[in-house]
Design a protein around this nucleic acid. Structure first.
Lengths: 121, 121
DNA sequence: AAATATGTATTGACAGTCTATATATAGACC
DNA sequence: GGTCTATATATAGACTGTCAATACATATTT
């Protein structure tokens, strides 16, 4: 994989970011790298996207932050709030439903009869 | 199902609309109703979204239109161009990859250990 | 000394979606 | 006759999420 998913992550970036916090608090840069790595580069979220997003999530009280000064470089660590956990789960369920739905709608495309990429003059 | 997928369809509305034209030409209103019905109301695309989208797809030569005057009410029928067919297929494949990727990333959320919605004081 | 990686943040632009509005006809119901 | 609903297309304006570009600062590597 290489190419970024071109707008396809629109609408569930929140979900992805929240999910990275499931196993404990993380700072922005780490979240970014984790997403990139665990998605094989498919979800390469830009800094200019991530930080505003984190600020928004915090403003909505879905995550909370603290400055970690214990390391050499200061970093802002985020963790899920209770509300954030709830949101994460409900969004994940909703996402599954949506995917299943679209999957079904696109089914004809993936059936044996589907044109593979070069026919019909 | 009831609630619209709240921004989740962002990024692949094109895909869904194109896919409705797989089995022959259709006019806007029909596309809208078809999507709504076949998705159990989950994908309820508004007129103000659909028509600009169709115009954009046509401007990109992914679909072409003709006015159908044979019926009582005039309607604009759209059909896939070759380019549109290609795009449809490539987008569908891309979508599948993306979904598989996210599915994997969210896996922890759906495993037995996941909190169902009310724990941790 | 210089380049690269880490780390957070803001700015401005763009594109896709939504809401609201406009227009017009067909058919059903009262 | 009048009203309501469904059919049918279209535009305007606002909002919002994402991206690209830029800025700044420090640690590590070369």
């Amino acid at each position: 994989m290489e190419k970024s998913s071109e707008g396809m992550l629109r609408g569930n970036l929140d979900l992805l970011v929240l999910s990275t916090l499931l196993d404990g608090e993380k700072h922005g840069y780490l979240i970014q790298k984790n997403l990139q790595r665990s998605s094989d580069g498919l979800v390469s979220i830009q800094a200019g996207t991530l930080y505003p997003l984190l600020h928004r999530l915090e403003a909505d009280h879905l995550i909370r932050s603290r400055w970690d000064e214990s390391t050499k470089r200061r970093r802002k660590c985020y963790e899920l709030t209770r509300a954030g956990q709830k949101r994460l789960h409900s969004q994940a369920v909703q996402w599954r439903e949506y995917v299943a739905c679209v999957q079904k709608m696109l089914q004809p495309l993936f059936e044996p009869g589907a044109i593979p990429a070069g026919e019909t003059p």
